[in-house]
């Protein structure tokens, strides 16, 4: 295994985060703080509690999940797309690296960045609301698992995209609506019965629900169903990547 090669890609990508610290860390931090102000303070003051939890605290897991998903996808898709765009992908393809090692470097870095941002948001949330985590290890496990899964998903988008428009297409048209309609800011119990059933078709709901359970032991669906959903998405992403790389799709042909 080319450990040095994996480290090279990983630290190269992490270095990009250091170089763009404002965009990478401050931007999601400011957005999250704004969510707290708007949803927590302004709207939240009119909603007393959801499932026995203060509304401000209730939205924390959803907000973390929202940021985690968008950041994982954006970091990872940009990470692999950028060398394709600049042409520097040639040295990665010419290096003695397996597909697995390349993915490990890029996805590992993207997931780490998302994790750092997720943990910063948890810390920031503590300034705005009373925060308690009933299952910290499960919370951390879900945080890591979701970061990896959606970094893989982002990698697929970046690998597939051949222009900046395509890079943004899926995150804007699919991911953002799914995240906002996935119970980040509400419980599906608050919706009419028809929309509750429609919401169950949204995979993001299962992620948010599972993550919220690790905080407050309240959820829209069982934690096991949430875990199965995340693992299913992870397996699908891995399968797509293995298939794409084995064919050298879009890059080597």
């Amino acid at each position: 295994m080319n450990i040095q090669g994996i480290k090279a890609i990983y630290f190269h990508e992490m270095d990009r985060m250091r170089r763009t610290i404002f965009q990478s860390i401050l931007s999601p931090l400011i957005s999250t703080s704004l969510y707290f102000v708007v949803f927590g303070a302004a709207i939240g003051s009119r909603i007393s509690e959801v499932s026995g939890v203060n509304y401000g605290s209730f939205i924390v897991p959803g907000m973390i999940m929202l940021t985690l998903l968008t950041q994982s996808i954006s970091n990872s898709s940009f990470g692999i797309y950028f060398p394709k765009f600049t042409g520097t992908i040639y040295e990665i393809l010419a290096a003695p690296l397996s597909s697995f090692e390349i993915i490990l470097g890029f996805v590992g870095a993207a997931a780490t960045k998302s994790l750092i941002i997720g943990l910063i948001i948890i810390g920031t949330a503590g300034f705005f609301v009373d925060l308690y985590i009933m299952h910290p290890f499960i919370m951390l496990f879900l945080l890591v698992l979701t970061s990896i899964t959606f970094s893989l998903f982002g990698f697929i988008i970046g690998y597939w995209a051949d222009n900046f428009e395509k890079l943004q297409l899926i995150p804007i048209l699919i991911i953002s609506p799914l995240v906002f309609l996935g119970g980040s800011f509400y419980s599906i119990d608050m919706l009419p019965e028809f929309w509750q059933k429609v919401s169950l078709l949204n995979p993001v709901l299962y992620l948010v629900s599972g993550f919220r359970w690790s905080f407050y032991e309240i959820s829209d669906v069982s934690i096991y169903v949430s875990l199965i959903t995340i693992f299913s998405i992870l397996i699908i992403c891995i399968a797509i990547i293995i298939f794409s790389f084995s064919k050298g799709y879009k890059i080597k042909n």
Binding site: N2, Q4, G5, A8, T86, G87, Y90, I92, A95, P96
Partner: peptide
């Protein structure tokens, strides 16, 4: 390569070191 394909914002030293790392050195 034929084209001048380099990352714009990295330093010369770091970029050359990065290439060495990719080859497992």
């Amino acid at each position: 390569p034929q084209e001048l394909t380099l990352e714009a914002f990295e330093t010369v030293f770091n970029n050359v070191n990065y290439s060495r790392g990719l080859y497992g050195k």
